[in-house]
Computed example of a mutant assay.
Amino acid sequence: MLTGIAEYKATVPEFTKATSHSFPLPVLKDPDLIATYNKLSSLSKSLLFVSIGLDIADGIYAGIKYESFARGAYRTVTNLTTTGVAAGGSFVGAAVGTFVEPVGGTIVGGLLGGVVAGGVAGFGFSKLENYLFEEKKK
């Protein structure tokens, strides 16, 4: 209380001991908001696991299609890396969007960040795959 203004701190048992006292918004005590967050969190984890499964399946398919273990392994690793880059881009985009507009900016920033980061990584890995594994034309 250095400023002379009372600070409001919320204690939320769903957060760790270190963070439960650092959020200055009493709204975090709202059980409906916490329940919504938990539902969305489990949905995003499920989507991530589905994406990882599809990445691995695409790598196996590429290995069989091109009859090349190396190409299948390359495709699997780069697909998984692209998924990670897209998740990171989504996180950064959501953080930047939150500063612009707390709710809508978070959603739009997260979507744009994920699409742009994943698209750039996927495009680059695809071009590199074609360069590495396609036969050189004479």
Rank of each mutant, 00 (worst) to 15 (best):
V50C: 05
V103G: 08
D32C: 10
P26S: 02
V50I: 13
V12G: 01
T81L: 14
F23G: 02
Y74C: 11
F69M: 14
D32W: 12
P13L: 06
E14Q: 10
S51M: 08
R71M: 14
T98S: 09
L28F: 04
A94T: 03
S44A: 08
G63Y: 03
L25N: 04
A73V: 15
D58T: 13
T36E: 11
V77C: 13
E14T: 03
D55M: 11
F91K: 10
I5E: 15
L80E: 12
G89V: 04
S51Y: 04
N38T: 06
T82V: 05
S44V: 03
L47M: 06
T3F: 13
K17L: 07
T36Y: 11
I34A: 10
R75N: 14
S41D: 08
D55K: 04
G104E: 05
G53A: 04
N38E: 13
V27F: 01
E7D: 12
N79A: 13
P26V: 00
P24I: 00
T81K: 10
D58F: 14
N38W: 06
P31E: 01
S51T: 08
V50Q: 03
K9P: 03
G89L: 06
I52C: 06
A6E: 15
T36N: 07
G4N: 10
G84T: 07
A6F: 15
V50S: 05
Y61K: 14
G97W: 00
L40N: 08
H21G: 15
K65P: 01
I56D: 02
K65S: 09
T83G: 11
D58W: 12
L40I: 05
S20D: 04
E14W: 05
F49Y: 14
D58R: 12
L33Y: 02
G84E: 07
T83C: 11
D55T: 13
A6I: 14
P102A: 06
F49S: 09
F49E: 12
S42H: 05
D30K: 02
K29N: 06
T16P: 02
F15S: 05
I56N: 02
T76K: 11
A70G: 10
K17C: 06
I5Q: 15
S68A: 08
G104K: 09
N79W: 05
L47G: 09
A87W: 11
K9Y: 09
K45R: 11
F69S: 14
G84Q: 09
T3S: 14
L47W: 04
I5W: 12
K65Q: 08
I60Q: 04
V96S: 03
S20H: 01
P24Q: 01
G89E: 05
L25I: 00
I5S: 15
S44D: 07
Y74Q: 08
H21R: 13
A87L: 13
S20R: 08
G88P: 07
V92L: 11
V12K: 01
V50W: 06
F91H: 14
D58G: 10
A95K: 09
I5Y: 15
K9M: 08
P26A: 02
Y66W: 11
